[in-house]
Design a binder for these strands. Sequence first.
RNA 1: GGAUAGGUGGCCGAGUGGUUGAAGGCACCGGUCUCGAAAACCGGCGUACCGGCAACGGUACCGUGAGUUCGAAUCUCACCCUGUCCGCCA
Length: 425
Amino acid sequence: MHDIRLLRDQLDHLREGMRRRGKLAEFGPLLDRAESLEKERRAAITELEGQQARRNKLTQEVAQLRKAGGDATALIAEGRAIGDDIAALEQRKNDAEAAVQAMLYELPNITLPEVPEGDETRNTVVKSWGTPREDSTGIMPHWEKGAELGILDLQRGAKVTGSGFIVYRGAGAKLVRALMNMMLDAHTEEHGYEEAWVPLVVNRASMTGTGQLPKFEDDMYGIPEEELFLIPTAEVPVTNLYRDEILELGDLPKGLCAYSACFRREAGSAGKDTRGLLRVHQFDKVALVRYATPENSREQLELLTSHAESMLERLELPYRRLLLAAGDTGFSSAMTYDLEVFAPAVGKWLEVSSCSVFTDFQARRANIRYRPAPGEKPRFVHTLNGSALAFSRIIASLIEHHQQPDGSVRIPDALQPYFGRAVLR
RNA sequence: GGAUAGGUGGCCGAGUGGUUGAAGGCACCGGUCUCGAAAACCGGCGUACCGGCAACGGUACCGUGAGUUCGAAUCUCACCCUGUCCGCCA
């Protein structure tokens, strides 16, 4: 969410931000309406507060008059009239305020200057690691190989819940555990993160704090009776840990990591892009969250991304890092790197991580602040997060990229201590 | 789920209809003292918003929302949360 003051003195900045995302047509009219509503809001406040001041004064007069034993009937009648006026003005103010607020909630973040303008065709590969297997001859797609190895049971997952809900079995289930432990150990022991184990269900305020709501309610699984939502990522509960709190400067930067199941409705899509593990409704992920000062949040993004990349290097999966163009950058994000691994049988690069700096966009929504120095005014922190990593596509890539000519799947060295064996066959 | 107590400023805590933004304490900031520190003493110290170039003026905020009233931290109702006891349960 943006500072409401931007509507007054930096409307051009907002407009330019929307243009860079290619969304000026969509948001330009909204900005104009928001600007005039903001004016209306202020006018209503000014008038309202004037009447409130009148009432406060009158109220004192009534008290004094009563004390002196006088008759306050006339003053009380006047007060009643002011009260009616105040109620109407309050309504006017609330209406304008709610309307402006609703618009601000709809507006995506402004991307950093270094983020390229335009849509996803402007995404740029800024780094590559390892050599993808271009020749897919003899490599079975992960859904076939997974079934053959007895580690993936897509049919029964569909039966038990529905399509897009995966059952891992035997060594497959253990593979999930191994990935979880390998990643969490690395982040806590080598990268300095505190591990958290969080609820998979959160309330509306938390979903609003990180930017999923109100705009993307349709993408969420919800429990309407309780006004609760299944988390699409551990970013939501972890970032909201410090909602409405003031952090100490000495605590920053602060990093938390958490494993969680993630739930996404992914409405609409079905077809070859969603085969096997490519796009599912529930998947496993280790998430990284960082809280930083505005001064160093940009460099914290590099650090965070490097932590995610190190997971791919341990798994010996070739990857590339994309700097997303403004139009492809997520709603709350100011700058995002995507990490993609190559799945040779699918013949595609798969997004397995997304690392973002949100500047103060989430912090303002969630009211997460820090005190720059004792006695100074609190400021909003900058939040960051990244997946490190999302498992399902990693498993897909692992099964395909590490598939051997004899049909077995090699387990990378770094994973073996956690998985307990060197090969899947 | 039932019963019961309670939610006040960064923290603790007083306050039950009218100069209460709110006593007192802690913490914090400045000063005196000291070689320096501690202690002691003196002073300062909430947040947000509106108007104003500013000085400053005004308004709101005592869990949340609605209500009663000329006037609500204080009264009424609903909801949320926390503690305690009972019940149930992995």
